[in-house]
């Protein structure tokens, strides 16, 4: 059995008296894609930020290919090595790109930082090609690009480092439906071409169906259900997973029933019927 790409065990994190992440464990294998879904405040984003190193855990550990990923990366060489393990794509490409740097320049900078001995030019072309950006878009500043193009730049920048794990935090949530489909297809292509593993944080069960093969459902900081994406979506076991699925608008949708179901779930949780 090969070593898992990413192994997260027993993560805990509290903010004040809120237990944001409560004993979260999961495994991501090479070339696999794991989704974490949940509502606002479920702890999915905090979990992702701990994996990336933007947040530290109170307890538990993150291993990449069997090696513990330290909570604090000290020193330039270690920080660079840490960045090559895990890269992140954020929700809002307006906020995550430098407004004064073109796509080509941001890739050149990233490549120079991580691979100073290599000629960046052919690799820049390869990356732009991989994410479907033309020469004109490559020279444009972020404000001259559309939302979809900007997210392509953010993905190219993350891939430039050749990371083992790509964490995508609501990476397609801000995009229009037609553009979102293009980016989801792009992510599927990249996964076919590279051994990269995806950790996909989203509230959108449709997106999860599309790009992940394993799924964790989180609520109040805890994992309430886990399994192959197709199984979890076809036959959800936990009432919260069922509630999430029923909440997705579909023909014959009854939002009034969902409001009641949420009440019932909250009541049963308070009485300790589900934990």
């Amino acid at each position: 059995m090969p070593e898992p790409l990413l192994q997260v065990s027993g993560l805990h994190r509290t903010f004040g008296d809120v237990h944001a992440v409560d004993d979260v464990s999961f495994t991501l294998n090479e070339g696999a894609s794991l989704g974490i879904v949940g509502g606002s405040g479920s702890g999915k984003t905090t979990t992702a930020r701990i994996v990336v190193g933007l947040e530290s855990a109170d307890a538990g550990e993150v291993r990449v290919r069997g090696r513990v990923r330290p909570a604090r990366l000290r020193g330039r060489a270690r920080r660079l090595a840490g960045a090559r393990q895990v890269q992140m794509v954020f929700q809002d490409p307006y906020l995550s790109l430098d407004p004064r740097t073109s796509a080509e320049d941001v890739l050149r900078e990233t490549l120079r930082l991580h691979f100073p001995e290599r000629d960046p030019v052919p690799r820049i072309r390869e990356l732009l090609d991989q994410v479907g950006l033309g020469a004109r878009a490559a020279e444009a500043l972020p404000r001259q690009l559309s939302g979809g193009q900007r997210q392509r730049v953010a993905i190219a920048r993350a891939l430039a480092v050749e990371p083992e794990v790509l964490v995508l935090d609501e990476a397609v949530a801000a995009l229009d439906v037609s553009v979102q489909a293009q980016i989801l297809n792009l992510l599927a292509d990249i996964r076919e071409q590279t051994p990269i593993g995806y950790l996909f944080i989203t509230h959108d069960l449709g997106v999860v169906r599309c790009v992940t093969d394993e799924l964790l459902v989180m609520r109040h900081g805890r994992v309430v259900e886990a399994g192959p994406t197709s199984d979890v979506l076809a036959a959800p076991q936990h009432p919260y997973t069922r509630l999430l699925l029923d909440s997705v608008p579909h023909p014959g949708w009854d939002p009034g029933r969902i409001a009641e179901a949420r009440q019932e779930l909250a009541v049963s949780e308070r009485s300790g019927a589900t934990s």
């Binding site: 979809g148 439906v177 037609s178 553009v179 989801l184 599309c210 093969d213 997705v248």
Partner: peptide
């Protein structure tokens, strides 16, 4: 029709979506 086809749904088959090319 293209918008409907490019919408990811939890009940759909996984895999590639019928994206609308261009902008």
């Amino acid at each position: 029709a293209a918008l409907l086809a490019s919408t990811p749904r939890p009940t759909a088959q996984g895999g590639r979506l019928a994206a609308i090319a261009g902008q």
